[in-house]
Design a protein around this nucleic acid. Sequence first.
DNA 1: CTTTCGATGATCT
DNA 2: GATCATCGAAAGG
Length: 183
Amino acid sequence: MTPNFNESPVALARQLLGWTLLIDGVGGVIVETEAYDVDDPASHSFNGPTARNGAMFGPPGTAYVYLIYGLHWCLNFVCRKAGHGAAVLIRALEPTHGLDVMRQRRHTADIRLLAAGPGRVGQALGIDRAFDGLTLNAPPFQLIAPAAAVDVASGPRIGITKAAELPWRFGVAGSPFLSRRLA
DNA sequence: CTTTCGATGATCT
DNA sequence: GATCATCGAAAGG
């Protein structure tokens, strides 16, 4: 079972909440996402393909990984259709698998700080440039469907300056593992 | 609780 | 040379 990646980024961002994301058996439940569409000034794909964003124009179900602020690796799921340039940023997980590994990578014991934020997700899962362009439908990735429907909250995306008003950040309502609270 | 600021480097103009 | 889909520590209420 895999998510339906042939969706708009907004639809996929909502759909992914509640799925369990593991890399080599380490990870947790996706509780926060952000949508980035083509024709979206905030998206890395807005000005067309470049060396960095090439994976965004690959087939749906591709990982797009990039380094931000020279320090933090961020993970996205490419969606809609090949060549389109749409993706969903994985912003936070509720840690469930491989807690000890994530605590070592993150240098903290606080479960709430293991994967609450895109840079933290990258560090907790051991992501780097080598994951850019890999398919999400095979190891080391593993995706497990939600057991039950989740209550979705939404709000403006974080840390962007363009199209900042669009409510394209989504989260599991009331989850204590969000990067920031969400109405 | 809140705000501010430095770290750190690839990418694009 | 400026920007950047961030984090953590420090300082101030």
